[in-house]
Amino acid sequence: MAERNFEVSRLPGFATTAIIVFIILYLPIITLMVYSFNGGASIALWEGFSLRWYEIAWNNDAVKSATMRSLTIAAAASVISTVLASMAALGTTRRDKFKGQTVIYVLINQPLMVPEIVTAVALLIFFAAVKVATGYQGLGYLIAAHSAFCIPFAYLPIRARLEGMDLTLEVAASDLYASSWQTFTNVTLPLLMPGVLAGAMLAFVISLDDVIITEFVKSGGQDTLPTYMLGQLRRAITPEVNAISTALLGLTVVMLTAFFLLTRKKN
């Protein structure tokens, strides 16, 4: 006779609901990916495997330039935000609380709290004025905006890493004749590196995914991959969009896997 224990944590219907949730969560994404390899032009009728839509997307100049622009902005924003966030994290952790520290925290986390549409509109207003005043129309505005809203995402893992770091290691370095700069380059930075890389990955993904702020800040002809996709809405949907989405997804998953590997606790 099978023995059935009374499982206290079991609640009726919960497991079923959870499984349904996971199916609903993944079904659209998987469908989207599968049909990116469709031989036909439908997003619902399967006509055999083909890389045709990837080829079409690849040969589409608009897609190509949007991809390059997305990667350029994401790379620049990731580097800038990570450097600035690392400095800020070093400035705000592991020292006595100082006057104004709360102001720094609020400013750094501000992009997480303000709805993106509000920031987007505010940037549109401000940058419109700056564009008129300076005549500069380049990618700088997008890079500045992306770098700014990526700062909190880069800041969090770096700060977590710093707070988990053994302070005595730096004390030991100074005891062993390292100057402040030598301590930083020989001890602090190598130990901080996983956090810095994790922050950079996260910032890259966040920048790559952004739609709203980019949509409002970009000048004419400055589409990124997401804003290009948004612009294609009015057209008939072909698996080309699926192919672009799948490529974007792939890039995100690679970055996230790297992020998880970097932040995973040893042992």
Partner: peptide
Amino acid sequence: LPPNKRPVNTVFQSYALFPH
């Protein structure tokens, strides 16, 4: 004088060995 200018060295309770 800061610690890096003093001719003394410390063995720390936690050892503080550099893990990297």
